[in-house]
Design a protein around this nucleic acid. Structure first.
Length: 151
DNA sequence: CGTTTGACTACGC
DNA sequence: CGCGTAGCCAAAC
């Protein structure tokens, strides 16, 4: 699974970004990773997946420490689903926390990213923290979540 | 000390 | 849409 060259700094950066996610919206492992400049020793195409895994490790490090101000529940996978083991206590808590923020799950247990997906921090914040523009998690075109307009 | 196991994602059916 | 797989490799067992 590999480890970032500087795990401590990488984790701090991840947590800092996650703290920016507004209540009622969600981000993905890959989107968080896309804001962090890839280490020079890692191939950029590999980083798309590797970085996401690293973000997952960073989130794991948070939830094990109950007393944290990091809203870890707002980070889900690229499919819009919860990545914690299905039925586990942690997974149930994550779903409950998100629902209490007003987020609705679909029948297949997924969240509509077009409706609840985060667009990332504003440009100023990114620049101040020397981070990159996030990769969009919303599918192109469909700004309107539910109603797909047929012409 | 060999095996199993991941808070992932893109891609092909 | 849903399901399986490759890539990757440090830790936990």
């Amino acid at each position: 699974m590999n480890t970032p060259p500087d795990p401590i700094h990488f984790n701090k950066t991840v947590w800092n970004i996650v703290r920016q996610i507004p209540s009622g919206t969600v981000s993905t492992y890959g989107q968080i990773a896309s804001m962090i400049p890839p280490p020079s020793e890692v191939d950029e195409t590999d980083y798309v997946r590797l970085g996401a895994v690293w973000v997952g490790k960073a989130m794991n490090a948070v939830s094990s420490d109950g007393s944290s101000d990091v809203p870890w529940q707002r980070v889900i996978n690229s499919q819009g689903g919860i990545s914690l083991p299905e039925g586990s206590r942690a997974a149930l808590e994550q779903r409950q926390r998100l629902e209490s923020e007003g987020i609705q799950f679909e029948r297949n247990g997924r969240i509509n990213l077009n409706a609840y997906g985060w667009d990332g921090p504003n440009g100023d914040w990114l620049r101040e923290n020397q981070l990159l523009t996030p990769r969009p998690i919303k599918k192109p075109g469909s700004d309107n979540p539910e109603q797909l307009k047929l012409f």
